[in-house]
Design a protein around this nucleic acid. Structure first.
Length: 877
DNA sequence: CAATTCACGC
DNA sequence: GACGTACGTGAATTGT
């Protein structure tokens, strides 16, 4: 079998990839688009070509031997964008991980290195393939050497063989140099013969074969002008020839034997992809076989699988992993437990652990310190098996989230890899994913779980130090850690649902939806899938000829704001809007909730405490933070949320305008502070200040607009966003914001300062030192930078509000225990807390909850709390 | 199974 | 002046 040498023009492909792809940012703020594009190209080559030898050549430095011939060589070129140049080191890392040789040589270009290797490969009668975006390389084409040029995009290439080249270019490969010499090349600043383009050059070469022949037979050239041009640019033409000629005898210090390619190691490459956030590429390179190989190659970790737990297996300072497959720890089975401490690494199968009195006693003793990943998950899972874990003194999940919230993968393997420990596999590699997820045999399982515990054991102190040095220890230790256990209790307790009521509402909705569907089909004159925007679009905008207001990537937009603008144009529109509204209620809230109700009519959501960039919680399966409230139809869903015990009530307490109060406090804006101290209606106050009118002259319209501006401030929306929400022009929106900032100089000052501060430090912080990194704040891209600036202004506001309510939860939990109340927390919805309590506690509860929430922090403005009780969530208003 | 569109909350 | 515009979760459709 003959050898196959693949030569890649590194710079050229990197450039192509960079400009073909949007400027991707990974979550650390490093641009990766060129690396990504390069990688997809590389993977394609490896799959299709099966090379035995491979080399990626790069240009070195700015000057080359060609500059001696012609100083202006490549003159006038735009300098490489910094967003690209910063990717070259990653590119080299990529190649190292793939075990592909890369090379550059001072004073020479990538072309010359490629030419030299192509020639050497040719001499050995190897098959050679060159990959580039640079047409100059076509001069290398021969019977042995083919050249693939990138077309549009990056993975699309056009492969030139001698015959294809001749057909396409109308000259032979050996004439390419002369062709270029005549034509010149504006991108390399090569003059050629001015006035001679591709057409003329091809014509001349067809007639004369070579450049020298053209000049020797100049008399026979047809056309007086052309003759003159050739005559007077003879020197340029020959110099150009010299410049475009690839040096096939470059003094490279490596030879063919140095570019042997024998394949790459799955583990290395997948770890690199994981670091860069190339998730999609991992599955592309990953096969089960490779995953198994990796496991064999992992370094030893001696794990003892226990069939009985004994004293000697336990320690007062242990890393503990309670392993479950799947995300939902309210239902998932425990597969086993990993323990690592000074005496060794152990794996306890689930049934052994759960039945062991010794293990239970150890776990419930707070003197035994446990380092875990996800304290909430761990405690809920153990609680389900009758074990109340105490003494958790480290949560890697929270530590990782607090030190680097922008990271998307807070799991033990990902964190370990980021910290430089690669001797652990990803869950996906061990368990598979999706439908293929399964528990492996015990040796793989125990080894993987023990390795996780081992990483906890190894990394605890480093991560703790990081929290300390970030001044986030208090945030971690006194806020998030205690909160995790409180949230765990809330989740485990669950919320009771009136299933019959839900079903009743579902049946009612069903009827109304059927009726509406029939009416809409009737009005449209045909039946179609009402839930398909793709089918609805043509009916509204073609058949019924309604004006097109907005388009999406794939067709007409039929979103609510578009439909609202059309609502008096056709009677079908209001019906559609109603259909959508009711359809949403039925599918998401009725059917969605029914799907997750347990047999005992309880719902157990999961609060994600390590997800949002601002510090807020989120809620899943189901999301209980977006149960309808604005429209009466939807609000009725809340009638299905009821107390879990007879004679109990739902009790709800919410902060009034917490974000704006936080803004007043951190911006130290006197006017805002005064407004809150005087307990003014804040939107009316804003309207008075922005429009310079008296309280009595504030119209509903003015208050509405002021409210939208306040909303914009709190959520960090742009001028565009404000203009959309108010239905005004961007210019007007801009004026509103300016008038707002003129009215509140303290706020203006804060906004300016926080952006400067973020630029200088690279991150912003909240009241309790939560961080958000903003790498884009110095971006030269207007959009990225603007977004980062708005985020810098908004995150301290929203994040501090999140800090405050979290602290209120910790304080309240403590207080409820202290007062020995039966009342218990059920839910948190960003600025409100939902509890349930027996009737006799309601009076006391109202007092306590308000007091705790209002006094959990001391701001320059009062925090106001509204509370209410009811026999359902709906009635607690 | 992933991407797209839409809609709900704060 | 263009760019594509608060953060989340989830459902349905559609194309791979």
């Amino acid at each position: 079998m003959t050898n196959k040498l693949v030569l890649i023009d590194g710079n050229s492909i990197a450039y192509r990839a960079f400009f073909a792809l949007p400027l991707l940012n990974n979550d650390k703020g490093v641009h990766t688009n060129a690396v990504y594009g390069f990688t997809t190209m590389l993977l394609k080559i490896l799959e299709e070509e099966n090379p035995t030898h491979m080399l990626v050549a790069f240009d070195a430095g700015k000057t080359t031997f060609r500059h001696k011939t012609y100083e202006e060589y490549k003159g006038g070129r735009q300098k490489t964008p910094p967003e690209l140049s910063e990717q070259f080191s990653l590119l080299r890392e990529l190649l190292d991980n793939f075990q592909i040789k890369h090379y550059e040589l001072n004073q020479y270009e990538a072309d010359d290195i490629i030419g030299t290797f192509a020639k050497r490969g040719e001499e050995e009668k190897w098959e050679v393939k060159v990959i580039s975006g640079d047409r100059d390389l076509l001069q290398l084409v021969s019977d042995q050497v083919s050249v693939a040029l990138t077309k549009k995009g990056i993975t699309n290439v056009e492969t030139y063989t001698p015959s294809y080249l001749e057909e396409k270019m109308e000259v032979r490969a050996d004439q390419i140099i002369d062709l270029k010499a005549l034509m010149g090349d504006s991108s390399d600043n090569i003059p050629g013969v001015p006035g001679v383009g591709e057409k003329t050059a091809v014509k001349l070469l067809k007639q004369f074969e070579t450049l020298s022949n053209v000049y020797e037979g100049l008399e026979e050239v047809s056309g007086k002008k052309l003759k003159e041009k050739l005559e007077s640019n003879k020197e340029n033409a020959f110099m150009s020839k010299q410049l475009v000629t690839i040096n096939v005898d470059t003094p490279v210090e490596i030879g063919l034997e140095d570019v042997t390619y024998t394949g790459y190691e799955y583990q290395k490459v997948s770890a690199f992809f994981r670091d860069l956030g190339f998730q999609s590429l991992i599955s592309r390179i990953g096969g089960e076989e490779e995953a198994e190989k990796v496991q064999e190659s992992l370094p030893e970790l001696k794990v003892t699988v226990l069939d009985e737990v004994k004293e000697e297996h336990l320690s007062s300072s242990t890393a503990l992993v309670v392993e479950m497959l799947g995300d939902n720890y309210h239902t998932a089975n425990i597969e086993g437990i990993g323990l690592v401490h000074e005496k060794g690494a152990y794996f306890i199968p689930a049934d052994v652990a759960v039945e062991s009195e010794l293990f239970k006693d150890w776990a419930e003793n707070s003197q035994n310190k446990k380092a875990v990943f996800d304290a909430k998950k761990t405690s809920v899972a153990l609680t389900r098996h009758g074990i109340e874990i105490r003494g958790i003194d480290f949560d890697m999940l929270l530590a990782s989230y607090l030190t680097n919230p922008s990271e998307n993968h807070h799991d033990i393997p990902s964190i370990s890899h980021r910290m430089g420990y690669k001797e652990i596999q990803f869950d996906e590699e061990v368990y598979g994913k999706g439908a293929k997820m399964k528990v492996p045999e015990i040796s793989s399982l125990s080894s993987h779980v023990a390795r996780k515990a081992n990483m906890l054991f190894e990394l605890k102190s480093v991560m703790e130090e990081q929290l300390q040095s970030n001044e986030q220890w208090e945030l971690y230790d006194e806020l998030e850690m205690p909160l995790a256990l409180i949230l765990g209790e809330m989740e485990h307790t669950g919320v009771k649902v009136d299933v019959d009521r839900l079903k009743e509402m579902g049946a009612e909705l069903e009827e109304r939806l059927n009726q509406l569907e029939a009416e809409i089909h009737d009005l449209a004159g045909e039946t179609f899938n009402l839930n398909s925007p793709k089918q609805l679009g043509p009916i509204l905008f073609e058949k019924l000829e309604l004006p097109v207001i907005k388009k999406t990537k794939t067709g007409y937009s039929t979103s609510a704001d578009v439909l609202e603008q059309l609502s008096d144009q056709h009677e079908i529109i209001p019906k559609l809007l109603l259909y959508r509204q009711l359809g949403k209620l039925k599918s998401t809230y009725i059917e969605g909730l029914l799907k997750v109700v347990h047999d005992d009519a309880m719902i157990h959501t999961r609060f994600n405490q390590a997800l949002t960039q601002t510090g807020r919680l989120s809620s899943t399966e189901p999301n209980l933070q977006n149960i309808p409230i604005r429209l009466e139809e939807g609000k009725k869903i809340r009638q299905a949320f009821i107390p879990s015990k007879e004679g109990w009530y739902i009790f709800a307490a919410d902060y009034s305008q917490i974000e704006l109060r936080v803004l007043a406090h951190i911006a130290e804006d006197e006017k805002l502070i005064k407004a809150f101290n005087d307990n003014e209606d804040i939107h009316t106050q804003t309207a008075m200040d922005v429009f310079h009118v008296d309280k009595d002259d504030v119209t509903d319209q003015m208050r509405r607009q002021a409210k939208a501006v306040n909303f914009g401030i709190v959520y960090g929306i742009s001028e565009y966003g404000l203009s959309q929400s108010l239905g005004i022009s961007r210019k007007e929106a801009k004026q509103f914001i300016e008038r707002y900032l003129d009215s509140y100089p303290g706020v203006k000052n804060y906004m300016d300062e926080i952006v400067l501060d973020a630029k200088q430090k690279g991150y912003v912080t909240t009241l309790m030192n939560r961080r958000r990194y903003l790498p884009d704040i110095t971006s030269r891209n207007f959009n990225s930078r603007s977004f980062a600036e708005r985020t810098a202004m908004n995150t301290p506001i929203q994040g501090s509000a999140a800090d405050i309510i979290k602290k209120a939860m910790v304080d309240l939990h403590h207080r409820l225990e202290e007062e020995q109340l039966k009342a218990t927390l059920l839910l948190q919805v960003h600025d409100e807390l939902i509890l349930e309590a027996p009737e006799e506690e309601l009076g006391k509860l109202e007092e306590i909850v308000s007091e705790v929430m209002q006094n959990t922090v001391d701001l320059d403005v009062p925090l106001l709390v509204d509370s209410a009780k009811g026999t359902t969530w709906y009635d607690a208003k």
